[in-house]
Design a protein around this nucleic acid. Structure first.
Lengths: 233, 233
DNA sequence: TATAATAAATGTAATAATTACATTTATTAT
DNA sequence: ATAATAAATGTAATTATTACATTTATTATA
């Protein structure tokens, strides 16, 4: 098509905003950024960026994630676009929400802190700029939805984790206590866990066996989906 | 925020493209548009539009759907954005894919035809412009995914439909034959169907009872999801 | 008016998954 | 040796899924 066809339409600012989840201490957390520049200095905000002329939205999201966490292999998926005319009083700007799941480490936590970013418990989030609180709500909703039909955990938990830890992730996400016997039975039946010889003794005197995900089987299950029934709806 | 902040970023063209599904004659169909203007005259394309300065992406999608079908209460959901730098050789343009499900009627079919649009069987789609074939593939994938965990049919079938018709929709979507006894049993167990006194005799001598969806229950089930198991995966 | 043809409608037994529920085990600290 | 703690385990009852073949209602035709 020729450029002239397009000339009649107006161009818009296009941004990405990342809704970044982590899991630590039995708590689901979200990384938010404290603006250190005017305008809106001191306000909390999701981490985002404009989509530049020479990059895709996905690339923009990855760029921002890399910058704030130092990681370049982060799980990230598009959530939805936010395009209400008045959503940004500064200028007409649509934003593509992307949610990301990251494995918290000391290293990436420190880097984030340097950038003025902070991990908040999802249940204790401050007010965020613009429509960012809505984005978080939508992302949480999506995450719950995903976890209902697809395995979750590989991206959020440390490489080696215990079954009680995994259960806490599910309980936190769904805000429900689950039965340990049934949880264990179901998770093991999925055939995506590899039991290690080691134990993690930080949580109890007895210690809990460490597990790893079987990456290949995890991916397969994530492709086909299943019904994750751990409690009556 | 002040306009100056934004001045450094470049603006992009933002479009929506609608992936419009219908179901008729036991076939899943897609509405595509034959460009009647240069450039690319005669090429098949999804129906789309630029997002205008004074409307949201959702509004742009609804506007286009209304124009081509005369309907203003169409089920439409965002699929994903397409933002590869080179996706449109005419100019840098991102597109928000939206998929829609419509109930085919003579009236809206005629209107579409007036606009040079045509319903193709999904399995016999022509080549489409740009990345539109990919959008269709993604939308089909999404539709299958949705149908695996949520009820489907209300938006695609006529208000009154038979169970065999509904089964054909599922069989078509998943490209699998299903057992009529199990299908019926499962669907009825969901409690979203209301049996009418009338029969549709167009398909057989015996005739099949017509049903309607119980809209409220359908919506509830769509909110919470379920596991739709009609065949072994 | 009996018969053939056709798709719709139905039932059941075997298997698998989910649910509800309480005790024992391994370890550390005292 | 004992107490304390979270981890790990088993089972029976219920519910859902699967596999599979015959009967039924109706129309068209012989």
């Amino acid at each position: 098509m020729e450029e002239s066809r397009y000339a009649v339409a107006s161009k818009l600012y296009v941004a990405v905003d990342c809704i970044i989840f982590g899991f630590d201490d039995g708590e689901l957390k979200l990384l938010v950024f404290n603006r250190q520049l005017e305008p809106l200095k001191g306000m909390w905000s999701l981490i985002g960026s404009f989509v530049l002329a020479n990059e895709s939205a996905e690339a923009a999201g990855k760029r921002v994630l890399q910058e704030f966490t130092g990681l370049d292999d982060i799980f990230m998926e598009e959530l939805k676009t936010y395009s209400e005319v008045e959503r940004d009083p500064g200028a007409r700007c649509i934003s593509i929400g992307q949610y990301a799941l990251i494995r918290l480490t000391e290293k990436n936590t420190n880097l984030a802190a340097q950038y003025g970013a902070k991990w908040f418990e999802v249940s204790k989030l401050p007010d965020l700029v613009l429509d960012h609180n809505i984005m978080v709500k939508d992302a949480l909703h999506r995450l719950r939805n995903v976890a209902q039909f697809y395995p979750i955990g590989l991206e959020l938990l440390p490489k080696k984790f215990t079954i009680p830890q995994l259960q806490r992730l599910y309980e936190e996400l769904f805000q429900k206590k689950m039965d340990t016997r049934n949880f264990r039975k179901k998770l093991l039946s999925l055939n995506i866990l590899i039991q290690l010889k080691e134990k993690d003794k930080s949580g109890s005197k007895k210690g809990a066996f460490l597990y790893e995900f079987d990456y290949t089987k995890y991916r397969k299950l994530k492709n086909k989906g299943f019904s994750f029934s751990l409690f009556k709806i």
